[in-house]
Design a protein around this nucleic acid. Structure first.
Length: 572
RNA sequence: UCCCCGGUUGUGUAAUGGUAGCACAGCAGACUCUGGAUCUGCUUGUGGGGGUUCGAAUCCUCCCUGGGGAACCA
């Protein structure tokens, strides 16, 4: 990708500073990074921060970034996730060229490294089961209430097996001579280490589970802590960038590199992305899907890349966002409004304008001849002259937005009310002469206006001030459409911070999707899924792949900035 | 409890011993055939105490406070 984002070019960050030091000191001669997704779920906006950092830093330093699937857990991984992840990364505009790797391709080499470490007397086969391991580690009761002490762990009774016995046992583990969970291979480090990660971590486990790539070739699988540093080293990764949760794993990362005597990759950690009104936890997102709170992983309300894409987000907007949020070690919560700002800014420049009415009210122009139709010229995009112009039909009966009429106008309201004049965008200036009401409900059913023939196109030859301009659609030519209006899935700014004892699902916005039926310009009948428009005065919309009974559906990607809404809110 | 890592306007992020800046949000105004866009201006910040220094967001120290960790997941 050609990176033109000024924000990331201009700013330095602590990772880039480290890299500059490493290059200056000669610790590394080049920069290689990697993005290591586990193929067990869909990519969301949080992951994009990680791979944006990996790819853009490599690009900044003239280096490369590998895509490596960290697929060492056969129980959760699947080829379909690999495909989805690749599709999403490509869509965002990042290119790993031919550097596509799989940790599962390294199984044989990793096994050899394990043997090497056993030879050095730094690993042993343990017969303890998972519960016993935890107990021996000295912390059988994880306690968030800070009551328990952390005693030093105790050595496993199998810790002092001879190298020969360990070698023999490990080979038998691989050969499938033991049941799942019966034995593990553990690094022999220090059971009294203050960092519990270092208390003889498990390197290999036995699991008779077919792997999506290696099938039933293996019954032992390497653990992340063992596999990751060695995979990095084998690929010559200089800077292994990951999120803060791995910070306490770094001593172990370095330990395996030292003991295996391989390329000294360096791990650097940064804080992961949080966004207000959004959850970015795989587990939470899975529950939303599984329990039907959303329509699927690609529901436009989801923070998944698939969801954002369907919602109408552009790769450019997301990349701009990623350049603006920065990189640091502070736990951060980025305002979702920044993401929305980036989208508006991008879409404002590039999307065609079109008129659509989503809450229709009939307007009749009393002095317009029955049956007469005129074609009026409209600008496709005032921000982009190249986008050209189009013709839209105008007639005696129009649909306008119900909100654009008030029987008794509130202060500062300058749209339609009895006696007031507004401009119909690209049409004529009209004056409201009356309206009808449903006697039962009190709802306004129809508006009547007269038009001024001298104002064709919307220009007032006498320079009279017309404060309001409203959008409209000719009723005789209107195309029916469905608009899907979204609100945050979570009303709380920080939905993950739920009070103890409260199920976060109970805090969800029950009304985050509104489907409304409306009318649009004729051109909207010929759109394709994925097409993006600005519906003037309403927001940016993207045509959804889905449609009901041939009525095209449009997702509101983001609303327009709405100054009036603020005025209205203050007035109430 | 122990170990690790953080705390700069509402939010995010710069300043690497020398004028605390930028963006979003917010507020006010200008302009406008989208109450859009654009433009202008404004408010708000170095968690606290002590120390080093001519000078501290930055270095030292104590405290306060937030996050992470104790999987045969990654």
């Amino acid at each position: 990708m050609s990176d033109t984002n000024p924000h990331e070019a201009a700013n330095s960050d602590f990772i880039r500073d480290f890299i500059k030091e490493d290059l200056a000191s000669g610790r590394f001669k080049e920069v290689r990074t990697r993005f290591p997704p586990e193929p067990n779920g869909w990519l969301h906006i949080g992951h994009t921060k990680a791979f944006h950092i990996d790819f853009s830093i490599a690009a900044d330093f003239g280096g490369t970034c590998n895509l490596r699937f960290d697929d060492t857990n056969p129980e959760k991984e699947d080829l379909s996730y690999v495909e989805a992840i690749k599709r999403d990364i490509k869509w965002l505009g990042y290119d790993w060229k031919d550097r596509e790797f799989f940790a599962s391709d390294y199984y044989e080499k990793l096994y050899d490294f394990a043997v090497k470490i056993i030879h050095k007397g730094q690993a042993y086969v343990d017969d303890l089961n998972d519960e016993e391991i935890r107990e021996y580690r000295g912390t059988n009761v994880p306690d968030k209430n800070n009551i328990t002490l952390t005693p030093p762990g105790r050595n496993s009774p199998y810790r002092e097996r001879s190298v020969e016995e360990n070698l023999r046992l490990f080979a038998r583990m691989r050969a499938g001579e033991f049941a799942d969970g019966e034995k593990t291979l553990r690094a022999k480090i220090d059971m009294a280490h203050p960092n519990l990660i270092m208390r003889d971590p498990v390197m290999y486990r036995i699991r008779r589970e077919p792997h999506y790539r290696t099938g039933t070739t293996w019954v032992i699988y390497p653990m992340y802590d063992f596999q990751h540093p060695l995979s990095d080293a084998m690929e010559g990764v200089t800077h292994s960038l990951c999120s803060l949760e791995y910070e306490i794993h770094r001593p172990l990362y370095d330990w395996f590199i030292r003991e295996a005597e391989v390329f000294p990759s360096r791990q650097i950690e940064f804080s992961r992305l949080n966004i207000t009104h959004t959850v970015l936890s795989k587990r939470w997102l899975l529950r939303l899907v599984k329990e039907g709170y959303v329509l699927g992983w690609d529901d436009p309300r989801m923070p998944t890349l698939a969801g954002l894409r369907r919602r109408g987000y552009t790769p450019e907007a997301i990349r701009d966002f990623l350049g603006r949020i920065g990189v640091a070690k502070t736990d951060s919560y980025v305002d979702v409004q920044l993401l929305e700002f980036c989208l508006r800014e991008d879409l404002n420049k590039r999307s065609r304008r079109v008129m659509a009415v989503l809450n229709p009210l009939r307007l009749v122009i009393e002095n317009w001849p029955e049956g007469k139709v005129e074609e009026l010229e409209a600008v496709n995009n005032p921000e982009d002259p190249v986008a050209g112009k189009r013709l839209i039909p105008f007639g005696r009966e129009l649909w306008i937005e119900r909100d654009d009429f008030q029987e008794v106008p509130q202060p500062k309201y300058f749209r339609l009310f009895p006696g007031n004049m507004v401009r119909l965008r690209y049409g004529y200036i009209v004056t409201c002469t009356g309206f009808s009401k449903d006697p039962e409900t009190g709802m306004v059913t129809e508006l009547r206006c007269t038009y001024d023939p001298a104002t064709k196109g919307g220009d007032a030859p006498d320079n009279r001030k017309v404060k309001g301009t409203i959008h409209w659609v000719s009723a005789a030519h209107a195309v029916q459409l469905e608009a899907r209006l979204f609100d945050h899935l979570f009303p709380a700014e920080r939905p993950m911070d739920v009070a103890p004892g409260i199920d976060w699902l109970a805090t969800m916005n029950k009304d985050s999707l509104k489907r409304v039926s409306g009318w649009g310009e004729p051109i909207l009948a010929t759109t394709e899924p994925g097409d993006r428009f600005q519906f003037e005065r309403l927001g940016y919309f993207a045509r959804d792949p889905d449609s009901v009974d041939g009525v095209p559906a449009f997702n509101r990607s983001v609303s327009l900035r709405d100054t009036w809404a603020k005025i209205e809110k203050k007035g109430s």
